[in-house]
Amino acid sequence: MENVLRLTDMSIAFGGLMALDGLNLEVNKGEIVAIIGPNGAGKTTAFNCITGIYTPTSGNIEYLGESIINKEPSDITKKGIARTFQNIRLFKELSVFENVLIAMHLRYNDNIFTSTFRLNKKMEDEMREETKKLLDSQDLYKYRNDVAGSLPYGIQRRLEIARALATSPTLLLLDEPAAGMNPQETMELTSYIKKIRDEFGLTVLLIEHHMDLVMDISERIYVIDFGKLIAKGTAEEVQNNPKVIEAYLGVQDDA
């Protein structure tokens, strides 16, 4: 099985706080892998390290066999890692169409001269055509002229995924994609994630707060608590792990 992502002994400290402490994690091609853990466990921090927003204090991150530590976030995206954010980050005042169109830019090589004097017309047309197709396939085309920030929450989440897909990723990172969704919507999301995985040939790493949600979808699960990996394995293995039960009992209130 081809390895897509490998974190080795990755640690990051903020001041005195070890947000991640020696994390080891692997994701293989075509897998859907989940990271779970209580609030403040360090899940989002792991994503921020992978995408280059934070630089780990120590350890290594390999993507398709190549170390991506110290790389610019935009370069990491260009290599094929796309993500969504826990607190949706859309280009709020731009249209749905523009949100996706902007994410198409990275695959086209135009510069300020070609774009200003419209010498890139062919590229621009292609980008627009692709955007249209992608929006169509994600059932978002009808919203294309709407201002992204004005859309209902659920649609914004889907748009954020569509925007990530527009960068043609190999590895898709989803940070709590089901946050704020009701059980019905969550179920739909589950099948949607599987669908795009197959359609776009993706490898997916996702963060979820609630264990029961990821049981259905993920082949393997990593459990983090206080920055440390406390368990890993299949849904069943993880579910019956006493450490996991303990970690979750401690925070049952906000789970």
Binding site: T51, G52, I53, E72, P73, S74, D75, T77, K78, A82, R83, F85, R89, L90, F91, I102, A103, H105, L106, R163, A164, A166, T167
Partner: peptide, 9 residues
């Protein structure tokens, strides 16, 4: 942050 995440330097 979102701009960087879609490949903008």
């Amino acid at each position: 942050i979102a701009a960087r995440a879609v490949g903008i330097n």
